[in-house]
Write a protein that binds this DNA or RNA. Structure first.
Lengths: 220, 220
DNA sequence: GTCTATATTATGATAGAC
DNA sequence: GTCTATCATAATATAGAC
């Protein structure tokens, strides 16, 4: 397949270095992307390495080579997932730095709903693991969730300073907010079967964001 | 183990009928109860029939005998789960039939939160299956969920008639409500790891019920 | 109905050629 | 780094004694 590279029996390293590495990284990338979808839809046990490899269009042996085992692949998938989340919100917060505090609170709430609609795999992932209390859930909390919760609390502090937040303590508001914002998108297939509504349409996302905002914030 | 029943080599049916049947029903019951916990915690693929049999204290072969296969056991577990839910709410609705409409709406909302806290397995079960769109999810919607959704809509109708409901359409309010009410209990292990709060305490349940009620109903 | 033993399959992981 | 072939294991389902 690859074009002949002349009579040299052992190719020198300078030629061989870049290209294979780039391809290897692409392979790794492709496996992680596919793993995110598989794990979030089927759970850790439900997703098989064979199926992930097949969907990714790579050989099953490569999963072992790049990630050692299924558990490490799962961690790589989670890392990618939260890196995307962090990058997205970091960019937004920078864009909103000039807005006043009350407006920023509303923007964050609405954007979280929008992010949930665009990344239902993130929410499914969290629920797949959060439902039982195994070691993977613990790893997830310690390595990722625990860093995000204080950011959420900071938002609540701002909202309270503006007298716009519903009464309740942080923990209850956190889970009520996350649940209200994300469940419809995490269960989008069920929603469509049950009610006929596809929650992923622009109109539906906007309606849900408006509802969640109204649920959390008191009318002035 | 069983006391000798005399010299009769073939026991007559009248004596043999009741006792073994009662024991068989108890076995069936025990398997279903255990299956509910296992399936809701680990998901369909994660829960193994071996583990369920072991936890239930019965032989693995009995699962096949009573339920034919894993799928049928799962359906039996769902049927039991929703039967409990229906019975519980039917009893409540009867007890509240004399209350005025506005009070009944508040009672239903609060009781749903309380039920969620007392039966986190129900919510975990729904989420385990609702996250992917396989045939089990379809079965669940058609055989159980589709019967409950109109009841929820009836409650919304009452609430709107009393001008106490937040603005939004039925589908969005439904999933926002279910998510806000149940997520904290479905993810109780995660919640405790992340925040230190055990959501299953009486104080916490009451606080969450109050919050969810405030999120759904407008202040008069 | 209950149990023991086993057949069959499918999964995660590995070995080794290229 | 990539691929094929294979091992070891664990799961569902079955067969048949009691």
């Amino acid at each position: 397949m690859t074009p002949a590279r002349g009579p040299a029996s052992k190719p020198d390293d300078s030629q061989r270095k870049r290209r294979p590495q780039a391809r290897a990284l692409a392979t790794r990338d492709q496996i992680v992307s596919t793993a995110i979808v598989c794990f979030s839809n089927l759970g850790f046990e439900g997703a098989t390495t064979r199926w992930i490899a097949e969907q990714a269009g790579v050989n099953q042996g490569l999963i072992t080579h790049h990630f050692k085992n299924k558990e490490e692949l799962w961690k790589a998938a989670v890392d990618r997932l939260f890196a995307n989340f962090r990058n997205d919100f970091a960019a937004r917060m920078e864009a909103w730095q000039d807005a006043d505090r009350a407006t920023r609170v509303r923007l964050i709430i609405r954007h979280f709903v929008r992010y949930a609609s665009e990344h239902p795999e993130q929410l499914r992932f969290m629920m797949q693991e959060g439902l039982n209390s195994g070691p993977r859930m613990q790893w997830l909390v310690e390595n990722h969730l625990s860093a995000h919760y204080p950011q959420f609390q900071a938002m609540l502090r701002d909202a309270r300073a503006e007298n716009m937040l519903i009464e309740g303590d942080d923990v209850h508001i956190f889970y009520a907010f996350v649940g209200a914002a994300s469940t419809i998108f995490a269960l989008s297939a069920e929603c469509e079967h049950l009610t006929g509504l596809d929650p992923a349409t622009e109109k539906s996302i906007e309606a849900h964001a408006k509802l969640v905002e109204a649920m959390l914030l008191v009318t002035p």
